[in-house]
């Protein structure tokens, strides 16, 4: 089996897939804790549907570089969703449900009416579930993913203390003179970038899993923010790496294999959490 793996690793596209997969998993896990705690998990879900809609439009318009459309549209939606989430009058979750389902339906409609592809359901399926697209990444896409991932990690490291403060207690932060709304905006933009990146890896329906599972798993095991963040990053990277390897060896779809590994890791962490918690008490 190791021979087979060694043989696969000779191919550049397999190496690209591994690099990109690990980077994306790292990024998506970092903000997971914040999203879960701010009750923002559903925003990730909504945004991924928006990204799907944007991708459908890009496909119809025959854009060569669909990122140019998908990224800005997703970022703008993230900012808008965050705004409505803060507004007490419009129910945030209702707005998100509306936008996400609308974008999903609209995207599929566009693809159905205008697509020239002979394999329509295959196209849709791969945008939703991520299919094999990660194995067909071009060198330019790999670079783009790498640059964006590094930017996300740097932003997270630089603003780690502020993100913690704003997530834990927004009112206290504002009272202490921290620009909490500014940091919320930053968080929204970074989430949007992560979602667009992660779409390449697992497809738009499975993104939330990539964002949320490592954070939830880590929260079973650790009880301070720093350890939870580090643990969820490590878990996410390990799961993505092993998921990609398994999918190459077993020929399973990349996205769902990674998510399956994440779910398994969550189960293990739950059990470990119960055992260590039992010892502590």
């Amino acid at each position: 089996m190791l021979d087979k793996l060694g043989m696969y690793l000779q191919y550049p596209f397999v190496r690209y897939a591994l690099i990109v997969g690990v980077l994306i998993a790292l990024c998506s896990s970092l903000l997971g804790v914040t999203l879960v705690l701010k009750r923002f998990s559903f925003i990730g879900d909504g945004l991924s549907h928006v990204a799907f809609g944007a991708m459908a439009i890009a496909a119809v318009l025959n854009l060569t570089n669909d990122m140019l459309l998908v990224l800005p549209v997703t970022i703008i939606s993230a900012v808008l969703l965050l705004r409505t989430g803060q507004n007490a009058k419009i129910k945030g979750d209702a707005a998100i449900a509306m936008i996400s389902v609308g974008a999903l339906a609209f995207g599929y409609l566009m693809m159905n009416i205008f697509s020239t592809s002979s394999n329509l359901s295959g196209d849709v399926c791969s945008t939703l579930f991520g299919s094999t697209s990660i194995l067909t990444l071009t060198e330019r896409e790999v670079w783009l993913c790498t640059v964006l991932s590094i930017a996300v990690v740097l932003i997270f490291l630089l603003f780690y203390n502020k993100i913690f403060a704003v997530t834990f207690d927004e009112n206290f932060s504002k009272a202490a003179g921290t620009n909490a709304n500014g940091y919320n905006l930053l968080i929204a933009i970074v989430i949007a970038v992560i979602i667009v990146l992660a779409m390449n890896l697992v497809g738009s329906l499975l993104i939330s899993a990539l964002v949320i599972f490592p954070a939830l798993s880590a929260m079973r095991l650790f009880r301070n923010f720093k350890s939870v963040t580090i643990c969820s990053a490590v878990l996410s990277v390990i799961c993505a790496f092993s998921g990609i390897i398994v999918s190459i060896l077993a020929g399973t779809p990349v996205g769902s294999t990674i998510v399956a590994v994440d779910v398994a890791a969550f189960a293990v962490c739950c059990i470990a959490g119960v055992i260590t918690g039992g010892i502590r008490k």
């Binding site: 804790v33 921290t178 939870v228």
Partner: peptide, 27 residues
């Protein structure tokens, strides 16, 4: 310095006492 009424987020937040007190220095 502000001591707010407790919010819901704090109830299941994985944060240590040290991390929380230090965040008082953010200003």
């Amino acid at each position: 310095g502000y001591l707010p009424q407790q919010t819901i987020v704090q109830k299941d937040f994985p944060a240590s006492v040290g991390e929380i007190v230090l965040s008082g220095c953010q200003g």
